[in-house]
Design a protein around this nucleic acid. Structure first.
Lengths: 149, 149
DNA sequence: GTAGGTGCAAACCTTTTGCAGCATG
DNA sequence: CATGCTGCAAAAGGTTTGCACCTAC
């Protein structure tokens, strides 16, 4: 499940959808493809914008329904802190990335990390939780806002 | 900014509100108090439920407006991943806590941590970002769901 | 007394759902 | 050919806003 492999095979969404237990349909394939091609974060409406360009178009209802299914299947996940609507990201990033939110200007900064965070693993292992991935959320004040204040 | 201190002084919301640059009003005090007394995560609607009990009641509009202001001031922050509506928590927890979400049953597990995560600090320092706090988001499969699958 | 906070209700935006028709396996 | 996905449009749920009144300083 490495990103390189997925890209080589143009995401092979047929395979991923079937492995996730879905039957392959025009709507799901379109939503899945749009999500995979969107880098970073996206909202449901971002996907709708891409999907209504199809002919015939993929409807808003299908986009929402498919995104739900893809969350169930673990293909995308919700990742927001502060927004009033849901924000997603797909899970096929090669390197885990982390977030830092400025509490003043609300800008979101991302940074990559090649390592693994080991501190918390024993705690979760004791709880019987199988970790598939992780992400850090920092909050603070960004460079520009420090100068401003 | 220790939780114990705040509780001793019954949150002293007058002081906190004024320090944050607000003038003290009945509405803001009520929203602030409700947020501080709510442990863990809360939605805007949770606060509304508490605030309409006041006589005279604090309206839904005031709750939303005050929560916005309190986010600006860094008194509460948004913290969600997956929900369709905004979820908040106040920032006066004694110990930072972290989250683990099961991608199957969507249950949210929390666990506390006394330590500090130092790995990422240099990266953010290089970006000029002043860190006020952090939180980890793990995603994976919880104990019960592993047995089920 | 004045600037600005509040309540109400309507508007707005995002997400969900019922139903009839259509596509997939 | 049957199951179940899709589009449409309406409804539901959550959040924002305009305006007239009221309150804190």
């Amino acid at each position: 499940m490495k990103s390189a492999g997925i890209q080589q095979e143009q995401y092979r969404y047929e395979v991923y959808l079937k492995n996730a237990g879905f039957i392959l349909t025009r709507g799901r394939a379109g939503v899945f493809k749009a999500a995979m091609e969107t880098h970073g974060h996206f909202t449901a409406e971002d996907i709708v914008k891409l999907c209504v360009l199809h002919k015939p178009k993929i409807s808003r209802a299908t986009v929402y329904r498919s995104l739900h299914e893809m969350m169930e299947a673990g293909v995308v996940r919700g990742t927001a802190f502060g927004e009033k609507h849901q924000v997603f990201e797909h899970v096929y990033d090669e390197i885990p990335h982390h977030h830092a939110r400025c509490i003043h200007c609300h800008q979101l900064f991302e940074f990559k990390d090649k390592g693994e965070d080991v501190r918390y693993r024993p705690i979760l292992a004791k709880m019987g939780f199988r970790i598939l991935g992780h992400e850090m959320h920092f909050y603070g004040v960004c460079k520009d806002c420090q100068e401003e204040l």
